[in-house]
Design a protein around this nucleic acid. Structure first.
Lengths: 256, 256
DNA sequence: CGGTTCTGCGTATCTAGTACGCGCTACCGC
DNA sequence: GCGGTAGCGCGTACTAGATACGCAGAACCG
């Protein structure tokens, strides 16, 4: 009840997070901090990016910074908090959308938004391996939402519906990206190259498919459609187009 | 090169998994096993269902069975393998779809398929918390795929496209369910009831939203749309309808 | 300048996964 | 029937990793 540092407001955020979000001011007494939350997060992100999320341990990050493990706990209250901050760093501030500025219509804007999100995930596949703690509430995720909602400005949809649409699209993007992340992680863990990995996977599927109980799959396996991916973006493009089509049908219906 | 137990076939599956899938026969020498993979998996699933996936440790499961921790390793080569088997158990064999039998058309069938999948996840929210190892290749996931493909029989879509559609829909379902699972896990971890949890979350969002940089969100927060969920199925129904609409547009275009 | 507040970090604890090897059991072929 | 052998249960021990606790010293207060 006294101002910025009041915990009774009850955001449920930990002190470390609030500090990082700029919701809390740094004290002024004691010795100068030798580290900073930013440096710690950057180091952790570096490790995750080069060796996978699994390589991120408190000790490893500390070593990266030339500090002791326990020193990190002065800046971050737990590993989960570090995860949160890493996620936030990965997400970054969304880039401005050309279609939004030019007033090109909600569909173009939403499409760009989806692609931007995908690019963001692609750059940080490790982020999708972080075990989720709950619904997102962080500066950057808020910024992304805002942008998604802005894309729907001209759609004529109601407030509640706009939220649903944003949820649908970002869910789609996230899911697509997660698939890539899963494969990437599996490939990284075993030392196997991606092709060999997929070949092995297909062989397993073949072994499990019974022509009698699985006629459709058996047919597909015959045609070889499975083993020939149409480029990394193909599924995404297809899915996004379907989703946007579906939304468009709805927008037309509401408007008409 | 000698038959069923030949590892040179290279499915990449571990022995324990192959045994569980029935791809490998039980040896006949030695003492009778006191446990079984099935009982172990059942115990693990029980723990996960009642106390969350986090409570599943080798020791905990063993205790549940009145065995020692290490005894489990005779049946399961590692915890990750146990996870896989648990996932498989959760998935189960898909129920038959009425719309499929009655020839009600691909849209009805695909819709039913999606709902069935959602029910399955809902019954086993813990399964969605299992860190994914790679692309799914197991008897039950194969059975689910098959069913999805069958739903698209009358659609006139090409083989490759049918796969994409199945991927899109199951991805949507999975993503939706994952959101619920995340919330459920967070609620379970803190001792807080769901409402209090959401309220706290909303307060946090409010604190992060700046009316100037986030006009759309600020507007929404004013209307109170956020805090009034329209029932647990609402988002799912909305999203599924959009996705199916989008697919329908495509099917019509291809057919016409 | 003492007091206060903060820092870095060594030490220790706890949880969990799992390698290893021992002693025992049940079925083999002779 | 009997040694040989494969397979079982599990005690012991090691490892990695998160993190509680407390001390010593630094920076800034009045």
């Amino acid at each position: 009840m006294t101002g910025k540092n009041d915990a009774a407001g009850g955001t449920g955020l930990s002190p470390g997070i609030e500090a990082a979000w700029g919701l809390r001011d740094r004290p002024v007494k004691g010795p100068k901090p030798g580290l900073s939350v930013d440096r710690i997060v950057a180091a952790a992100v570096g490790v995750a990016a080069s060796e996978g999320l699994g390589a991120v341990s408190m000790g490893r990050v500390a070593k990266e910074l030339g500090a002791s493990t326990m020193a990190l706990y002065r800046y971050v209250s737990a590993k989960e908090e570090l995860y949160l901050l890493m996620q936030e760093a990965a997400m970054g501030t969304p880039e401005p959308l050309p279609a939004l500025e030019s007033g090109a219509g909600w569909r173009a804007a939403l499409g760009e938004w989806a692609w931007a999100q995908r690019r963001m995930f692609q750059r940080n596949l490790w982020a999708l391996r972080i075990p989720i703690a709950g619904p997102p509430a962080s500066p950057n995720s808020v910024a992304w939402w805002e942008q998604g909602l802005q894309a729907l400005r001209g759609s004529g949809l109601s407030a509640g519906t706009r939220i649903s649409v944003v949820l649908l699209v970002s869910g789609f993007v996230r899911n697509e990206a997660t698939l890539m992340s899963d494969v990437a992680a599996a490939v990284e863990e075993k030392g196997v190259p991606a092709e060999e990995f997929m070949a092995r996977w297909e062989r397993t599927v073949r072994r499990l498919v019974d022509p009698v109980r699985h006629p459709e799959l058996a047919g597909l396996l015959g045609t070889g459609v499975i083993s020939e991916p149409d480029g990394p973006d193909h599924e995404f493009e297809f899915g996004l187009a379907r989703v946007l089509d579906g939304i468009e049908v709805f927008v037309r219906r509401e408007a008409g």
